[in-house]
Amino acid sequence: MLFTLWTAWISFTPSTLMPENGFVGFKNYASVMATRNFSVAYTNVVVFGFCFVALTTIMGLLLAILLDQRVRGESVLRTIFLYPMAVSFVVTGTIWSWLLNPGFGIQQLVRDLGWTEFRFDWLIDRDRAIYTLVIAAAWQASGFAMALFLAGLRSVDPEIVKAAQIDGAGPARIYRRVVLPSMGPIFIAVMVILLQNAIKTFDLVRALTGGGPGIATNLPATVVYDLMFQRGQLGRGSAAAVLMLLTLAIILIPYALYQRFRRTRA
């Protein structure tokens, strides 16, 4: 918390390479918001955040439901789905950058198998490269979402399910009508955790796209880091960071209010 205040303070100073005192008002904010990098990064984080949270939630839920069908080897499968979380993007990002590279990655491998017209070149497409970040990020996080959902599924009261079965409801219906509605809080928890993940995404961009093609896949966290430490503009970087936190707050405050609402109702 103190660190946040400190960052807010620096954002109003003329700091460059080192933190300095002084006051320049909203100058840093104005110059940051005027750059293309910043507007690209903010559009991106909306697209990326939405797609990443949606895809990861769906994949996590699907995997959890599948694993919940008493499949054989559940513990092995669970480990397979969870392991990406155990390995940092600093290293796996490189492997993803190979797989997604159209020159020698998946596209080329599929072509070598005979489908010579196969195309999967999102990584070099300015408009689609952001979705490659979504794929790799979902790969890493959906195991965690799965674990949370699995935990949720397993804590649903078996009595309710049994009652629904006696009423003659099929599996799909039971999930839709009985199980999932009871997992509301878990959905919220998963989404909030994923959302803060999305906003903090940094290593992935560095390893996978380097912000490119061009500046097409910059995210706020990379822009902040770049300003503060590559360009030696601590003041502007802090301003960008504060803007980023404000965005977070816009999302988190409704969540906090919802929590409070739930508690007072309970």
């Binding site: 660190f3 960052t7 906003i199 503060m228 960071a241 980023m244 936190l245």
Partner: peptide
């Protein structure tokens, strides 16, 4: 709130 602060921002503090 500490959970949501990106680590890059905590470097100098």
């Amino acid at each position: 709130l500490g959970v949501f602060l990106p680590e890059q921002m905590r470097l100098i503090p």
